[in-house]
Amino acid sequence: METFLTILLDGLQFSSYLFIVSAGLTIIFGVMKILNVAHGSFYAWGAYTAAFFIGKFSDMGMPDAMGFLIIIAAAIVVGLILGFVIEQGILKYMYHRDEVLIVLATFGLFLVLEDIILIAFGTDPYFAYQPMALLDSVELGGIIRDVYGLTLIAVAALVALGCWYLLNKTKWGTLLKAVIYDREMGISMGINVPLVYTLTFIGGAILGGLGGAYIAPTISVAPGLGTEVIVLSFAVVVVGGMGSIAGAAIGSIIIGILRALAVHELPQVELFVVFAVMAVVLVFRPEGLFAPAKPRKI
């Protein structure tokens, strides 16, 4: 029972940050049909920005609770700046090109952004443990857990709820769905598609940044951060179905729990289990377990 609860909580914690990052990736894919490799860099930039300022503010003697504000601010600033600059500066000129070529362009961007991190933040790892220390720890299932890690699950739930509300209950969401289903139709209906693209990309980038910023206090923020997370989120969106928020949620829960199970019961398979699932899903259900319905075009 203790083991079960522990695996569940470990898994959900891992799923949570994967979901936040993947939600951004999948929204961008759903609307713009861009598989954005540079998304890993948004995550890394979010983590670095948050960790850097949490440390700076703490050194200046500000209360540690500021950390939470910094996390949110870091995600928004990173998403706004990187999202806007990349969409307007580069991607805008590529929409008529081949999908795969756009993936490659984002890979080039990824390489560039990774090194700008090194130049901007240096190579020393950052530790922004203050928010985690602030929230203390509790005993759950016979072991001690940090409360901060548990709040991660709540934040992911909030993000999921927010996305659902935005898509289904607002006028914006209706527009977005119109563009997702049929771009040309959207244009002819008078939707400002370029604006939708820009805002979507920025929104996705903010989610990528938020994933990084929120996880930052619990990890060592060091170079190479984005390399692993991007393939993990690829796995998540593939398993769940590319372009679907619900899919990203299911995908991250499956992958998070499987990985936690592996670490506890069979540590040797921890790394490959994620990708084995991804490959199996691609082989038997290439559209993913929860792909959005595809309209038929005549």
Binding site: A235, E270, F275, A276, M278, A279
Partner: peptide, 12 residues
């Protein structure tokens, strides 16, 4: 992506 997945299985 399927190629990526297969290569990452071997990597893991």
């Amino acid at each position: 992506m399927l190629n990526t997945a297969i290569s990452m299985v071997l990597f893991g």
